[in-house]
Design a binder for these strands. Sequence first.
DNA 1: TGTAGTGGTTACATAAGCGTCACAAACCTG
DNA 2: CAGGTTTGTGACGCTTATGTAACCACTACA
Lengths: 230, 230
Amino acid sequence: MAAAELPCVLVVEDEPAQREVLAYNLEAEGYRVLRAENGEEGLLLVNESAPDIIVLDWMLPNVSGIEVCRRLKTRAETRGIPIIMLSARSEEVDRVRGLETGADDYVVKPYSIVELMARVRAQLRRVRPSSVGETLQFSDIRLDAESHRVFRGDATLKLGPTEFRLLATFMEKPGRVWSREQLLDRVWGRDIYVDTRTVDVHIGRLRKALCPNGETDPLRTVRGAGYALG
Amino acid sequence: MAAAELPCVLVVEDEPAQREVLAYNLEAEGYRVLRAENGEEGLLLVNESAPDIIVLDWMLPNVSGIEVCRRLKTRAETRGIPIIMLSARSEEVDRVRGLETGADDYVVKPYSIVELMARVRAQLRRVRPSSVGETLQFSDIRLDAESHRVFRGDATLKLGPTEFRLLATFMEKPGRVWSREQLLDRVWGRDIYVDTRTVDVHIGRLRKALCPNGETDPLRTVRGAGYALG
DNA sequence: TGTAGTGGTTACATAAGCGTCACAAACCTG
DNA sequence: CAGGTTTGTGACGCTTATGTAACCACTACA
């Protein structure tokens, strides 16, 4: 199974017109597009073609989008594929449910096609670290490289340059454990001599900055190894 | 049970000709092949020989393939074994039901043997990562080296650095018996002086960590020789 | 030349993990 | 069964890794 050169997007949308608009724009953007008109077909295509990202309509006949999402996110091999949910509903409840099910992003119809494209790009960048990042996301934390800003939920977080780079490193590969030395390399620079304990201090500062209101600490200490996000 | 060097594939197919074609191709591909001609025999062989992957026909006398699948996927020790379902039916309903039952992949007859081989390889790669840095799996235990995490079923296990390295060593070669000296070399380091009995203590701690809720102990004590996983 | 913001280091407190021992239990061998 | 050996395991003291506050140094900028 050779890796496709072009990023591959699976569009699951029952309404033919909307599906084609999406597909057209995605193809114009340079993606390979797979189309599915219902949940079953979607699930099948995921197994067959391992797309890099999925744009998923909320309302689908039989197997609903949310159900498709749930199934994909509970299976280990498909859990990593980012899912962007589309929905006509704008109620808060559904947003929460959408993200709760494991969707990585959520867009309410009618959406700006440009915005959707941006989100697709963002999600892809998260998964395929080939190109440099604009927006990274992990759970409720968003990091925008361009504007140098970090959000948690709706709140804007305030963090210093070092903490920002530190967080950016973590968010490139959520879950991965970085040793203090690796972090010094990536965040401080290759030939800077700083005490490894300095990392600890900045981790502490990052933690404090990430949880201004007592949110759960997303950083994990791995004793004897280093730190990780999530 | 000596650790099989070759990946072991269990073929459950009642039609002799088809079974042999499959077996022939799998053996040509370098796998060890177990054959079963019905569901009961299949389930039996799973328990006896712990295959690495199962190719399972949908239509079987008595116990149907889907039933075999369901049973395996509900038992903790066998849940981790990937199952590829074969079916003559191509109806949407069945596809979905196949995946719903927990099958990891689904191939419709008549299939290209090349494609099937590719899928077997893909599933095996998922379960038996040959190289470092990927995720190791043994029965229902998964160890992810990169994120330094260990799961049993859905639960995340909490183990200390030494227990983690110990388990990683075992999972590299499930079934292999490691002497206390070998373990000290690999886990503690070549020129560390520690009592060999220390290994026993850490094995105990690892055991406790692996069975937080009274699951079956996957570690085997080989009297006079050492310890092994499975 | 203040002042505010940031960064690196140190020191100390605490938590986590480690290794050893001692005794109990299991096992083997006659 | 007796005697010896191997393994399981709780307890305990010790070491080490980590969290964190405090401090000083440096920079930028008005």
